[in-house]
């Protein structure tokens, strides 16, 4: 007989933490990524080679809570569930409506997207732009890590062997507008060649906040606070550089690969134009 997976289905988050500590089991929420990653040929049981911890059913991980300063999303809330929540920012909803297909959105979770840490993960640039932080829990307690410090490389992140991603915390912030664009392989059920998230706040003719985050063009999401700072709170009339020059500062950060979906040249070239267009649009806004 072929080996059988060891799988745990905890009754509570407490129990999940304990099982995670005791066994190092792999957390699985909807399975939409992991079942593909560990799939074998037809008819065979996917085999991650280590114990599995089902967490998708845990109520504590499947809720959205709005607080005064932030929105807290349980890591196992499905995409479909998020779409019906008023507290979820519009840019994230827009991103989710362009993500995969209804059957995937019914099972897939934003926590899974984060922990999968794929360079092409659709929600990641949006979560970076929203400056989310992640609540990682274990049997002993919780810690909170900003998303840009959590994801460290393709498929790599700072989740410890005993931790579970519990919540995604989206700080509330005022924005005058946002832009989300996914350049995919087709119009539905597609993987991103480039995904672009931009947010801005304009007050009294000045850019008070601007955030640009781009996915699928480098090992992790590209965001530069340094470049953003060169625009923030500078009167638009006294900006020294053209938007083309500003966008060009991103050039060293954009390091895409050529793969089965697109090319280095296309991804880099189009990304710079998307940035430039966003900057132009923002700087032309009256505010």
């Amino acid at each position: 007989m072929v080996t059988q997976n060891v799988v745990y289905r905890p009754g509570s988050l407490e129990e999940a933490y304990r099982l995670r500590t005791d066994t190092g089991a792999l957390p699985l929420a909807g399975g939409t990524d992991l079942m593909v990653r560990y799939r074998k040929t037809a008819g065979l049981v996917p085999d991650p080679g280590r114990p599995v911890l089902f967490i998708g059913h845990l109520k504590d991980l499947r809720r959205v809570e709005e607080r005064a300063e932030e929105v807290r999303i349980g890591s196992c809330t499905t995409y479909t569930e998020l779409l019906s929540q008023k507290a979820v920012p519009e840019i994230l909803k827009r991103c989710i409506t362009l993500l995969a297909s209804p059957p995937i959105r019914n099972r897939g979770t934003v926590g899974g997207n984060i922990c999968n840490s794929s360079p092409a993960g659709d929600t990641l640039p949006v979560l970076h732009a929203l400056e989310c932080s992640l609540v990682l829990g274990n049997i002993r307690g919780e810690r909170t890590v900003p998303i840009d410090r959590f994801i460290t490389g393709p498929g790599e992140n700072a989740l410890s062997e005993d931790e579970i991603l519990k919540e995604i915390v989206i700080p509330k912030a005022a924005f005058s507008g946002w832009c989300y664009r996914k350049i995919g392989t087709r119009r539905a059920n597609a993987l991103a060649k480039i995904s672009f998230a931009g947010l801005y706040l304009i007050e009294s003719g000045e850019v008070h906040d601007i955030r640009i985050a781009i996915g699928a063009v480098a090992p992790t999401v590209v965001r530069s606070r340094e470049i953003e700072k060169t625009i923030i709170r500078i009167p638009r009339t006294s900006l020294q550089r053209s938007t083309v020059e500003m966008a060009a500062r991103y050039r060293p950060l954009i390091r895409p690969i050529t793969d089965q979906r697109s090319t280095t040249g296309y991804r880099a070239g189009v990304t710079l134009v998307l940035i430039e267009q966003f900057l132009t649009a923002v700087l032309q806004k009256k505010g």
Binding site: L28, G31, T32, M35, G56, P103, N106, R107
Partner: peptide, 12 residues
Amino acid sequence: EIVFSCITPVGT
């Protein structure tokens, strides 16, 4: 809800 049974672990 519509789901893909090929990537749904039966235990879930």
